[in-house]
Computed example of a mutant assay.
Amino acid sequence: MLREHGDLLAPIAAGGALGSLSRWGLTTVLPHGGLSWPWATFLTNVSGCLLLGTLMAFVLGPWSHTRYLRPFLGVGVLGGYTTFSTYELETYVLGGHAPALAMLYLLASVVAGIGAAWLGLTLGRVVVLDTGREVVVDGIDPDLDPDPSPGQAQEDR
């Protein structure tokens, strides 16, 4: 596997460094006191979900033939930018002192993250479609037929 994909390590590492520095910058601007809402992590993860959704619209559309863009931006930059471990730790710490706030943070992060990913994908698809490109996976436009039968997908090709 390393022989086939070894060339992707440098773009992923470079992207991860940039994403991690971006997250560090946001936590510096919005420091967290421990017993209050962890805004930096919340905003980091939600904005990362939005950007990842947008990126997927382009990776499935006009940028589908680029080898290094998705590993650099998706795995590297956004993987280094978002943080599940800090989200878990902050939920745990809040749970010891403010269980209701911890539960709200836990749920709000998941709901906002999923909503942001959906919004990013939707907005990205609008932009891609406005350029005249289609967002197509395996010859199937997900907007027209989100769950095609296997035989139908073959007939359409």
Score class of each variant (00 low, 15 high):
3 R>L: 14
10 A>F: 13
10 A>R: 10
12 I>G: 03
13 A>K: 11
14 A>C: 11
14 A>W: 00
17 A>N: 10
17 A>K: 15
19 G>N: 04
24 W>E: 12
26 L>N: 13
34 G>P: 04
39 W>K: 10
39 W>G: 07
40 A>H: 02
43 L>Y: 08
46 V>K: 02
47 S>E: 09
49 C>E: 07
49 C>Q: 01
50 L>G: 07
53 G>D: 05
53 G>M: 08
55 L>Q: 07
58 F>E: 03
60 L>K: 06
61 G>S: 08
63 W>L: 15
63 W>G: 10
64 S>W: 11
66 T>W: 11
71 P>K: 02
73 L>H: 02
74 G>S: 01
75 V>K: 03
75 V>C: 00
76 G>L: 03
78 L>E: 03
78 L>W: 04
78 L>I: 06
82 T>C: 12
82 T>A: 08
86 T>F: 06
86 T>C: 04
88 E>L: 14
90 E>W: 15
94 L>T: 05
98 A>G: 02
101 L>Q: 05
105 Y>A: 00
109 S>H: 05
113 G>M: 05
113 G>P: 05
119 L>N: 07
123 L>P: 02
123 L>Y: 01
124 G>A: 06
126 V>E: 14
129 L>I: 03
130 D>C: 10
131 T>K: 09
134 E>F: 07
141 D>T: 12
142 P>C: 07
143 D>G: 11
144 L>T: 14
145 D>A: 13
148 P>T: 07
151 G>Y: 09
152 Q>S: 15
154 Q>M: 15
